[in-house]
Design a protein around this nucleic acid. Structure first.
Lengths: 255, 255
DNA sequence: TCAACAAAGAGAGCACCGCTCTTGCTTTAG
DNA sequence: CTAAAGCAAGAGCGGTGCTCTCTTTGTTGA
């Protein structure tokens, strides 16, 4: 038994060294990018020989996979923390907060963002371990829309009826309690959010968008409309009402 | 003079060899991805020695830059060709056609798509030559919205008034004739389009979206709504009308 | 307690990479 | 015709991912 013991000096050392390798690798990732990350350099910096690292990560790709999972979890935690801070606010504010958290994290950790949302290896299919970590932001967005939907604060998304969105099949276990067209619109908004963030992080807005932050807020607010978090009739009055009734949380009170 | 002559046997040979190098590099790119692309392998395949390639491309990055520009132009041409084929149709159909062309090209050339819209090198600022090639799809989208706007077929995008979109500064020369909030919404839609395409190409929809094509059409139709190509009152009837009367410039007037 | 075992480090080595430099040869320009 | 410039070839440098062997060192069961 105990094929994977957590006690014993050797086991302790293993998880420590593993963490040290990942830390140094993350340092090099942030400094130079994933392309320049080298097992030999990590080993050199840690004072060990390169072949020793292979006792912990059987290949460079395995190291990268570990960093990918960590990055997904880091992003997920940042988003969840921000969401928890405004958990009592209205769905629109929660939506905008989570989106802003994703953007902030991405701008703060551009190389890690590139690692998880940039170009993967061609045939690379994410291992199952990655999937749940990758879904944390998505689950957050689903939860916001679900809450709004079960409460009274949601409008069905404006539909392009000719597309028969009931033909848009999504994974059945994504959100079984939500109408499929809502899920489809939500998943699209999810992808579009990362389109906005990715374009900014990767410099695609360089000579195009001057004031990135208000632009992002504008686009995110429109996304909130699209997923049905705001009734078309709702203007600034409704938004202000949502902001104030948050028990003092989002008391930015606006200009 | 004639520091860059197009005549002469040597000059001819140079552009031929340059093209051969790019072709072989593109082959390896499509087969193995940008990470595996190797100058030495290209040279080996072409029967020359590796140092000879450096007469044509001073570094591996320069070769990649050339491939990037070609990829941008390839995508741009595909989009423009598709757009030309439906130039007489209504703005919605033109919008959807261009978006579909982008998606199709991306799915057909995943590695080239990853090259231009995946993770760039950290400090990499696109050389000026790249910029115009990169803007072709965006200009197409601008043209569609401009035509609709100058005609009578466009609705001002639904605004989130509390965000004061006039504070969203865009590059002044992007579309001086369009209202800034329209430009902002359009640029956001542009980024969101590539968010949708990127997520599909990079496998982010793998266990999430089953029927990718109708899902994409659905999302793109919603984007058309968001940028104001369709009046909220317009339902399937208006869409059908646009589809049938393909000879009349976007004078959908209607409603 | 002690011997058998397995985990881990050290080092050499292989094949490949990007890139530089030198050496001859050929095309071009004056 | 001669000098300059363009080009192919080869050797070589430092770096990479990864494998193999050898040795040391905790762990563990009889």
């Amino acid at each position: 038994m105990s094929s994977n013991p957590t006690h014993g000096a050797r086991a302790r050392a293993r998880i420590e060294v593993t963490a040290a390798i990942k830390d140094e690798a993350r340092r090099q990732l942030a400094a130079e990018g994933a392309a320049k990350l080298s097992l030999r350099a990590v080993a050199r910096e840690l004072g060990m020989v390169s072949s020793a690292v292979y006792r912990y990560f059987p290949s460079r790709d395995d190291l990268l996979t570990a960093l990918i999972i960590d990055a997904y979890n880091s992003l997920g935690e940042a988003a969840e923390a921000t969401h928890d801070a405004v958990a009592e606010a209205g769905p629109v504010q929660r939506w905008e907060s989570v989106c802003a958290a994703v953007r902030t994290w991405a701008l703060t950790h551009p190389h890690e963002y590139a690692l998880i949302y940039g170009s993967p290896v061609p045939g690379y299919s994410a291992p199952q371990t990655t999937v749940e970590a990758a879904g944390r932001v998505g689950f957050l967005l689903i939860a916001i829309v679900r809450d709004a939907h079960q409460g009274l604060g949601v409008a069905k998304p404006r539909l392009t009826a000719e597309l028969r969105p009931e033909a848009v099949r999504m994974a059945a276990d994504l959100a079984p309690d939500l109408p499929p067209e809502v899920v489809a619109t939500l998943v699209a908004a999810w992808a579009q959010l990362f389109g906005l963030v990715g374009f900014e992080v990767f410099g695609q807005f360089n000579r195009i968008v001057e004031d990135r932050e208000p632009f992002f807020r504008h686009a995110v607010a429109e996304l909130a409309h699209t997923v049905g978090l705001v009734y078309p009739q709702q203007g600034r009055a409704a938004k202000a009402r949502q902001g104030t009734r948050s028990t003092g949380k989002g008391s930015s009170s606006g200009s």
